Amino acid sequence: MIHNIYNLTTNDNTRLFFQVWQPAIPPKAVICLVHGIGEHSSRYHNWAELFVEKNIAVLSYDQRGHGLSDGKRGVIQSYEKLMDDIDFALEEAGNLFEDVPCFLYGHSMGGGEALNHMISRKSNYFGVISTSPWIVTQAAPPKIVMSFLRVLANLVPFFSVKTSFDTKMLSHNKDVCIKYDEDELVHHMVSFRLFVDAYDAGYGILQNPDKVKKPLLLLHGNDDQITDSNASKIFSEGVKDCCTFIQYDKAYHELHNEFCHQEVFTYIINWLDALLANNKQII
């Protein structure tokens, strides 16, 4: 396996930390992976290695305000900047792996971003994989509180507060939770603008299932206490023809770190291989 790390600067002069895992031979596909809020791309190292073993390259980056990338922790200028960063990463994937089928894969907040990108932006990727997406968060405040947060998001958009949640909600695997708590690159900050924009983007997803025109694999644990699996189910039911929704019984938030991770991985590979095979038949 070849593993490269480097920095790239976006059009708005933000330095993003990138890393690529790839097989020694030309890959049959490349995955562009978008991580969740508070974490960073290196938490997916072991997961990426599994894809490389199946001759699939993985490109990921630390989102702005996260990990080794620029930006105040948990702060964004706008949600559209996150969409721009996905465009930037997809372009990089195309530069590195020209003419190789590309798939967009997002987890948690990144899963919501992947769905929003699919709905709002044009791209030539083959399909989208979204795990435990932030469509609706389990910690969503009452509407009256959201009204107050919207005012703050306008007055002090870049002011951030420390969030608190039980890391045991990430996975049944205790080692995963301990490593998360001890990870110096993990943060627990969120700005008013980031929360409000992500909240609104989630409900925007729910209102636009008809805009999904490419294959979508949507995976969620039904015991997820961080994002709402029922919202994923409702959204999937509104998508016509091209969405596959799988719900994992008793699974928590990080399916790639859960007891069912091998089952999850196998399903992703089979889904991806079926799309690649179908594309070859069309050609």
Score class of each variant (00 low, 15 high):
28 K>C: 01
42 S>L: 14
42 S>M: 13
41 S>W: 03
41 S>A: 14
44 Y>K: 07
41 S>C: 11
20 V>P: 00
43 R>N: 08
42 S>E: 15
30 V>M: 13
42 S>R: 14
26 P>G: 02
26 P>N: 01
21 W>E: 08
19 Q>D: 13
16 L>F: 03
41 S>G: 12
33 L>S: 02
27 P>C: 06
17 F>M: 07
23 P>W: 00
37 I>A: 13
18 F>H: 03
21 W>K: 04
34 V>Q: 08
47 W>F: 15
26 P>W: 13
23 P>D: 06
40 H>E: 10
30 V>S: 06
32 C>D: 10
22 Q>N: 07
31 I>Q: 04
18 F>M: 07
35 H>D: 06
35 H>W: 13
18 F>P: 05
27 P>L: 08
35 H>L: 05
40 H>F: 13
34 V>C: 14
15 R>C: 06
26 P>M: 03
17 F>A: 12
17 F>S: 07
40 H>L: 04
15 R>V: 07
22 Q>P: 00
23 P>F: 00
31 I>M: 06
26 P>D: 01
36 G>C: 08
19 Q>A: 08
29 A>I: 04
32 C>T: 15
24 A>D: 14
31 I>R: 01
24 A>H: 14
28 K>M: 01
33 L>Q: 11
25 I>Q: 14
38 G>Q: 10
17 F>D: 01
19 Q>L: 12
32 C>R: 03
15 R>D: 04
43 R>K: 11
19 Q>T: 09
37 I>S: 13
39 E>R: 12
46 N>F: 14
24 A>V: 12
36 G>K: 10
35 H>Y: 13
18 F>R: 02
41 S>L: 12
18 F>W: 04
17 F>Q: 05
45 H>P: 03
35 H>S: 07
29 A>H: 01
22 Q>K: 11
45 H>D: 14
38 G>M: 12
28 K>V: 02
46 N>R: 14
36 G>H: 10
17 F>P: 00
15 R>F: 03
19 Q>Y: 09
32 C>M: 09
46 N>H: 15
42 S>C: 11
32 C>E: 10
31 I>A: 02
18 F>A: 01
20 V>W: 00
37 I>W: 15
41 S>V: 09
28 K>A: 00
25 I>M: 09
30 V>R: 07
30 V>C: 13
33 L>T: 05
34 V>I: 15
37 I>E: 10
18 F>Q: 01
31 I>K: 00
20 V>F: 00
27 P>K: 06
31 I>W: 10
41 S>N: 09
40 H>Y: 15
21 W>D: 12
17 F>E: 04
18 F>N: 01
33 L>F: 15
40 H>V: 06
21 W>H: 15
16 L>V: 04
44 Y>G: 08
39 E>N: 11
23 P>T: 05
46 N>I: 10
